[in-house]
Design a binder for these strands. Structure first.
Length: 890
DNA sequence: TGCGAGCGGGG
DNA sequence: GTGTACGCTCGCA
């Protein structure tokens, strides 16, 4: 029969001496299924040295001749290799070592490719892809879901996803000794909360409690052991495809596995009866594996997402920002009291746990956190679980598909020796990075700044110059070649299109196509397509980094350094093209962007100039390189390379929308009090939106005076820090730890405990700084004096000073000790301008007819400089005479 | 400015 | 599991 299913996870088990591959998935009919393949064996390639000796290696099942191309260095000459097939995947490393150490093989290829990946690549299958298999129903004692024997399998061209069931869970534990950290060997799990996207027995959440409680949505158990068994029963019955939870990879799963071990419960959380869930921790990275399911941890996903950064990554902060909801208010130190106290407390604790599991599920579902990974799996071919790791496996897999198709073998991952060699080589030759153009420092307020980007710079360079390890010319076999700025030579695509440029090109072309399809799509499909276009871009962009990554299989510094060298040449060339052909100045640029200062304050005109420059430059850049007009900054303040702020204007659905954009200038930092962030933002706002440097200075002075006069609320001066270990184990002097010691003395029966977060201010005194940290509330209640010099000199002033000095304001001006000149004034005798006129002209945008006053209805063809009507009323964009849409100024 | 240590999330 | 993998922020020189 034909079974159509989406491939969720792949592994294998041994049946006697032979591997049996298991494909776990969701069938078209919506059932969890497992497809078994018994006729696939592990193999690898060797370049033989002593062929006869192969006969003595008893594990080898067969030896075949194979003529293959090698991935580094262009050549049409195939190398004679032998394909070695053995029986057990886990024997491969051992046999590989033996062949090398006994001088039987000169070199080994593809002996370090995981069996599941080998299977997928060789069958042209991808993770999360739909497949159609010819199967017969079978029975096996190894899995918990219906199983089928596979006769054949082929990939399908389907974009949709099966309805995946998701279980979100959270555990609560209480330490037996509140002064010591939790110990999974001793301290029990007391509560497990579960939340389901597809309802389980008609409910969306359950809380399991290791006490004989009962109630709605509650399951009471006599003890921890029974509860853990109950947890396994629910997982088995619900049978989720995805298991999720906040920080489950490094906390909940390893903890619960240890508790199961203590109680002698086999941790069969997956879809197999023969393979337990386990946690692999390597260095600091921990990952939990549950066979047949996918473990997704929003904490790790969010932390690694380059698109958004959060100030903190705790569940509460994340939910506040993303969902507008918060955790229930239960402090860690309260938990033992709740658990050991009266019933109401236990129930409150249970509801707290329920909400955590629910919040996490909402993050996954409402924020659509898995779609990107599903699409990355579909494109790169790895199973979904492996998409949560790094870029390397994704690229290795994509390279394996393509190189294999073209008759190449991939080199092995580098061993310690090769890594050393690469490191040394790099230290000698150096891998030069990108160019950052020297910024014209200070405030640019006279005209709009255009921000222009090279679209997909490194992928475009790869495509244009055919830079790829397999097109790198290492001999004189070809007369026609391109010589890069570093001297490396590449054959043209007409001779041989490199695998890297080919894949990158396919990804980017496919992305354009998907973006086209998105226009006609809606609902679920639009989400999928959007995730897909992002995955395609993300994957295309990671190929350059791979060529220069020391651990890559197909590392080649000549390729990596060629790409950055072309990038550097490109940005310089572009700067010249712009400055030589337009009466305009490039004030900054970094890697793939240039910032251009126009002479107009009219946003429309600026936009037009941006489009003209984009067209002009793109026509003159080679191949796939294009310069796109990205956005307008009306004003632009640059402190140093990579640190700047701009008043951004973008034309959106509701007309011109403005915001302050900052790069590299941090206004929020954990060790800064609120006052610092507030002052910085105010100062930046005044400079960028009003151009009034004197006002910015005055504002800074005002804050300093308020600090001296004790007029600032202590809450704005508070810094919060947590106690992470026992007080005795801190060596250095830290303010919050000294405070914790003080509080413990003050209140011996309720001292601060591990996990507590202390908010403190620094008060006046002669002791060293860390001894002067004081609890904010205590300081307030006892009317203590804050150390205003500390707040001025160590908190507020340094970051604000960096901003002010970039526009030429001297420290002495802020502190008022007489009017002194800046160094620039002394050198050039120019008086610095304290007030910059910030005129804005919004222009008229196609489709929009003009502006209309909300108060007197007078129409204006252009935005007046004041931003308001003569009558003082706010101006709205008018469209086709009537419909006013949005206030455009404040 | 560059380096080495230390911590994050969870309970 | 045909393994071997962080990344930022801070304090200090």
């Amino acid at each position: 029969m034909a079974l159509v299913f989406q491939i969720l996870d792949v592994d294998y088990f041994l049946n006697g001496d032979k591997p049996v591959v298991r494909l776990f998935g969701r069938s078209d009919a919506g059932n969890a299924v497992c497809v078994l393949c018994r006729d696939f064996l592990p193999y690898f390639y060797i370049r033989p040295k002593n062929e006869e000796a192969l006969d003595d290696v008893k594990e080898i099942l067969s030896i075949e001749e194979a003529e293959k191309l090698l991935a580094i260095g262009y050549s049409t000459k195939k190398t004679r290799l032998l394909k070695i097939t053995i029986s057990k995947p886990q024997d491969v490393p051992m046999i590989k070592e033996q062949l090398l150490s006994q001088g039987i093989a000169e070199e080994v290829f593809e002996a370090d490719i995981l069996f599941k990946n080998r299977f997928l690549v060789d069958h042209d299958l991808h993770g999360m892809q739909w497949a159609e298999a010819d199967v017969v129903k079978t029975s096996t004692s190894t899995v918990k879901v219906p199983a089928f024997e596979m006769k054949s399998i082929k990939p399908m061209d389907r974009k949709d996803n099966a309805k995946l069931s998701i279980l979100s869970f959270d555990i609560e534990c209480v330490p037996s000794d509140p002064n010591r950290p939790l110990d999974s060997k001793k301290d029990p799990v007391v509560i497990i909360s579960l939340s389901f996207n597809v309802p389980y027995r008609g409910t969306t959440s359950i809380v399991q409690v290791a006490k004989p409680v009962n109630g709605k949505g509650l399951q009471g158990f006599p003890n921890e052991k029974d509860m853990l068994e109950g947890f396994l029963r629910v997982i088995d019955e619900y049978n989720p495809d995805i298991i999720t939870g906040y920080n489950i990879n490094t906390f909940d799963i390893p903890y619960i596995l240890e508790r199961m071990r203590v109680h002698g419960i086999p941790p069969m959380l997956g879809r197999c009866k023969d393979k337990p869930a386990y946690n692999k921790s390597t260095g600091v990275t921990q990952e939990s594996i549950i066979p047949g399911r996918v473990v997704a941890d929003p904490y790790q996903i969010l932390k690694r997402d380059p698109r958004i950064k959060f100030s903190r990554y705790d569940l509460n902060t994340i939910c506040k920002v993303l969902l507008g909801d918060t955790k229930m208010d239960v402090e860690y130190r309260e938990m033992p009291k709740l658990w050991n106290g009266p019933l109401e407390g236990v129930l409150r604790f249970a509801e707290y746990a329920r909400k955590d599991a629910e919040l996490n599920l909402r993050l996954v579902v409402e924020k659509d956190m898995l779609s990107n990974f599903i699409e990355i799996a579909k494109v790169s071919g790895t199973v979904m679980q492996d998409t949560f790791g790094g870029q390397t496996l994704r690229i290795d897999n994509m390279l394996l598909y393509e190189f294999r198709k073209r008759g190449y073998v991939l080199p092995a991952k580098p061993d310690a020796n090769l890594m050393n060699k690469r490191t040394n080589e790099r230290e000698k030759a150096g891998l030069k990075g990108a160019t950052v153009l020297e910024p014209k420092k200070g405030l640019h307020a006279e005209g709009c700044i255009l921000v222009m980007d090279f679209k997909s710079l490194y992928p475009s360079i790869m495509r244009t110059f055919n830079t790829s390890p397999d097109s790198l010319l290492v001999d004189d076999s070809v007369g026609e070649f391109y010589t890069s700025p570093t001297g490396a030579k590449f054959v043209p695509a007409s001779v041989h299109e490199g695998v890297f440029p080919y894949i990158v090109g396919k990804l980017l072309d496919s992305r354009s196509e998907v973006k086209g399809q998105m226009k006609d799509a809606d609902g679920e499909m639009k989400k999928i397509l959007n995730a897909r276009q992002y995955a395609l871009k993300d994957l295309a962009n990671s190929f350059y980094g791979y060529t220069g990554y020391l651990r890559a299989r197909v590392y080649d510094i000549r390729v990596a350094s060629t790409i950055t060298a072309i990038g550097r040449e490109n940005i310089e060339k572009t700067k010249d093209l712009i400055e030589n052909n337009f009466d305009i100045e490039v004030v900054y640029g970094d890697t793939d962007s240039v910032f251009i200062k126009t002479k107009t304050t009219n946003l429309e005109d600026a936009k037009k100039i941006g489009e003209d420059i984009s067209k002009f430059v793109s026509e003159r850049l080679p191949g796939f390189l294009t310069l796109d007009f990205e956005k307008i900054y009306r004003t632009f303040l640059i402190l140093t390379k990579k640190r700047y702020a701009g008043w951004k204007f973008e034309f959106g659905k509701n007309g011109w929308e403005d915001s302050i954009e900052m790069k590299g200038i941090e206004t929020v930092r954990r060790d800064w009090c609120k006052l610092v962030s507030e002052t910085m933002r105010t100062v930046l706002d005044i400079i960028l939106k009003e151009g009034d440097l004197q006002k910015a200075v005055n504002e800074t002075k005002r804050v300093i005076i308020q600090l001296r006069n004790n007029e600032i609320d202590f809450d704005k001066l508070t810094v919060v820090k947590g106690i992470t270990k026992s007080l005795g184990s801190y060596d250095g002097m830290l303010p919050h730890i000294e405070l914790a010691r003080k509080l413990a003395q003050r209140n011996p029966h309720d001292p601060p405990k591990i996990g507590d977060r202390l908010g403190f201010v620094i008060i006046k005194g002669n002791q060293m700084l860390s001894k002067r940290a004081e609890d904010t509330k205590y300081a307030k209640d006892n009317k203590l004096q804050i150390d205003s010099d500390y707040y001025i000199n160590s908190q507020v002033f340094p970051p604000v000073e960096r901003i002010l000095s970039s526009v030429g304001v001297e420290k002495s001006e802020v502190f008022g000790s007489g009017r002194q000149s800046t160094i620039a004034d002394i050198m050039f005798g120019t008086k610095r301008k304290m007030k910059h006129e910030i005129a804005i002209n919004y222009g008229t945008v196609a489709g929009w007819e003009g502006l209309v006053c909300q108060k007197c209805a007078k129409s204006h063809p252009r935005m007046p400089l004041s931003g308001r009507c003569e009558c003082g009323g706010p101006l709205l964009f008018s469209y086709q005479g009537s419909a006013a849409q949005k206030v455009v100024t404040e």
